[in-house]
Nucleic acid binder design. Structure first.
Length: 435
DNA sequence: GCGATCAGCT
DNA sequence: CACAGCTGATCGC
């Protein structure tokens, strides 16, 4: 689409309308610009609109354009190149990624474009079937010209079960450890359904850090305060920030009381231990994943349907993913049948155009299949081009041990950020120690 | 001194 | 490997 019209998950300015798919940090860069958001109308789901002011206090509410799942809005824009008026209709489709997540379907003078944002597509579940119907209704038989696809797990070897199945596995693991404390790694938003399922199945409260509880209540979950708590003494099950969860922190917790850790993650190299050598934080790659340098280069010996195994001492990872797996992407592609596909995630295991993996659906032969590395396509200045994930450089440095952080100097900046972000595992640990 | 942004890391 | 995020350093105000 022409530059200067609309931007999705990109908030640097220069567009006439802005769209936010969901409230994860890597999709909101630029939203918190100094002086508050004032580049233009900002479309998002009502749920996202409710959470936005807590993350971006400077936001001007009069610029928010909440769009309910399934709802449409008309946009009157003007072409920056010709000054001619352009008419566009946008429809919000549930993305089933995290609470409030949406896809956006744009139709109008410039053709038909679908931006999925991050999404899941579990057609065994009612919610996903309704989302699919909403998408088919919105398309009205039209073909999608350009699809911007969540290609996070766009590889034939990356398949995992629907979330309810994995949630049940997680309940089984916790039940098998009746005398253990349990910590579960989660993000600032997402996996609420998992925690709810665990809480109800085990009839136990789940500890979350204060800001996480605020988010849960803003989502309208557990308004009677029956399932979640910030009081450590009330439960043995805690949801902690994902990046506080390391082998070292788990070991330290085990010096206080027996504790298991569970990491719900779709990332394949966390799924299986390579003889106890794999680590969350470590230098050696998991041996169960090998890349041969071609698009079919990922091999796995993990069976996501088999019972979860110990990943490392006291630690489990389960393929509970908020991104579509390959078979879901395949159905999605069959449904949408796009002329052009652009992956929105440039990561190492999705380094070809997603369309390459689905060429059998389109009768392509290899000659006509664009196998250009995704990361070489598009440009930073173009709106609606793949988001970029800068690959960190690799200067090896000494490893940090977070767990002894009570001794660590904490800068004022850190403390200030903490006020906004709530507790990390260090505080959890303190609380367990006190309890 | 402050917030924004970047580099580096998991 | 990095799903999304945290931290410390640096820079401009």
């Amino acid at each position: 689409m022409e530059e200067g019209l609309v931007s999705v998950d990109k908030f640097g300015g220069g567009s006439q309308a802005y769209f936010l798919t969901h409230l994860h940090q890597d999709h909101t860069r630029g939203l918190g610009a100094a002086g508050g958001w004032r580049h233009g109308p900002l479309y998002c789901s009502p749920t996202t609109a409710r959470l936005l002011p807590t993350r971006f206090p400077g936001i001007d509410a009069s610029l928010l354009r909440p769009l309910a799942p399934g709802a449409s809005a008309s946009l009157s824009l003007s072409s920056p190149s010709s000054d001619r008026p352009l008419s566009l209709r946008v429809t919000a489709i549930p993305a089933l990624h995290c609470p409030g997540s949406l896809m956006y379907l744009f139709r109008g003078d410039l053709g038909c474009m679908l931006y999925t944002g991050d999404f899941r597509w579990e057609l065994g579940c009612d919610k996903a079937r309704r989302a699919k119907q909403a998408l088919l209704d919105a398309l009205g038989g039209d073909a999608v010209d350009v699809l911007y696809l969540d290609n996070t797990y766009c590889h034939p070897s990356l398949n995992f079960p629907p979330r309810p199945i994995v949630a049940e596995q997680m309940v089984d693991i916790i039940q098998a450890h009746p005398d253990h404390e349990v910590i579960i790694g989660v993000d600032t938003l997402g996996k609420e359904d998992l925690l709810l399922h665990i809480s109800r199945a085990l009839k136990t409260k789940i500890w979350v850090w204060p800001q996480r509880l605020q988010t849960i209540h803003l989502l309208g979950i557990d308004e009677n305060h029956e399932l979640f708590t910030t009081q450590t003494s009330l439960t043995r099950v805690r949801a902690v920030p994902r990046y506080s969860f390391t082998i070292e922190s788990l070991e330290a917790l085990n010096t206080v009381c027996p504790t298991i850790g569970i990491m719900p993650s779709g990332i394949p190299w966390l799924w299986k231990s390579s003889e106890g050598k794999a680590k969350y934080s470590g230098r050696s790659p998991a041996k169960s994943i090998r890349c041969k340098g071609r698009d079919d280069g990922i091999e796995m010996d993990y069976d996501p349907l088999s019972p979860p195994k110990l990943f490392e001492k006291d630690s489990y990872t389960l393929p509970y993913s908020e991104h579509a797996c390959f078979s879901e992407l395949e159905d999605f592609m069959q449904t949408v049948r796009p002329s052009t596909v652009i992956g929105i995630v440039c990561s190492s295991f999705c380094y070809v155009n997603p369309r390459h993996h689905f060429r059998h659906l389109f009768g392509d032969n290899d000659v006509h299949t664009d196998r250009t590395p995704v990361k070489n396509k598009g440009g930073d200045t173009n709106n609606l081009t793949p988001k970029r994930r800068p690959n960190g450089s690799t200067t090896p440095k000494e490893r940090k041990f977070r767990i002894s952080s009570s001794n660590l100097y904490r800068s004022k900046v850190t403390m200030k950020r903490k006020e906004c972000c709530g507790a990390r595992i260090d505080d959890t640990e303190d609380l367990i120690g006190v309890a």
